[in-house]
Amino acid sequence: MIGKLLMRDLQMLLPGGRRGGTMLPLLFFVAVAVLYPFAVGPDAPLLAQTGGGVIWIAALLAAILPLDRLIAPDLELGVFDQLALRGVSEEMVVAIRVLAHWLSFAPLLLIATLPAAALLGLEGDTVRLVLLGLLAGTPGLAAIGVMIAALTAGLRGGAALSGLMLIPLAVPILIFGAGSLARADTSGIAYAGAFSLLLIAIAPFAGGAAIRAAREG
């Protein structure tokens, strides 16, 4: 049952999937890396110094793009109702969706980090820290994304609101993940990973409660 739900979620959310899951977040991410040197000028040391942070910001904003199709369409279709009738808890559905959401954007984002890092002229060590940091931080971003998508699913204008709500919640991950670049060690990444684990632990319960609340509304 878990496998079937995960397959359905992946078919929905992966680029080229049925819910219009396009390459858009990925192209958005690369576009930021392309545009940044135009904005600040071709000063190589400056780009190398700030480029890691720019990649982090681009990753965070790219994670916002798919939020409106994570939960709301299924709520509208009555999929959660039918799953509840079959004894599948909302917590389980949300946990599976966090995994599917992460799989649908994070691995591709990590791959796209390489061309982005090349465009910004980042050094090998910095690229390694960015990749490790994103690996630790993106599961947390996925958990926040699904939680917020569930919270705003029943609301009018939920898509715009969810973007605004994600940003403050993602700040701890950003501080520790991107902060590891300035210190050039991995202790910050460990903190970003710890935040991710915490968020993943909370997400199924918060998201499940939000879906039930949306049903009552």
Binding site: R18, R19, E76, L77, G78, D81, Q82, L85
Partner: peptide, 15 residues
């Protein structure tokens, strides 16, 4: 076991 049919068909429009 319970089964329900209401105004929501719970079938993916794209499928």
């Amino acid at each position: 076991t319970l089964a329900m049919v209401d105004e929501k068909a719970a079938l993916d429009p794209q499928l």
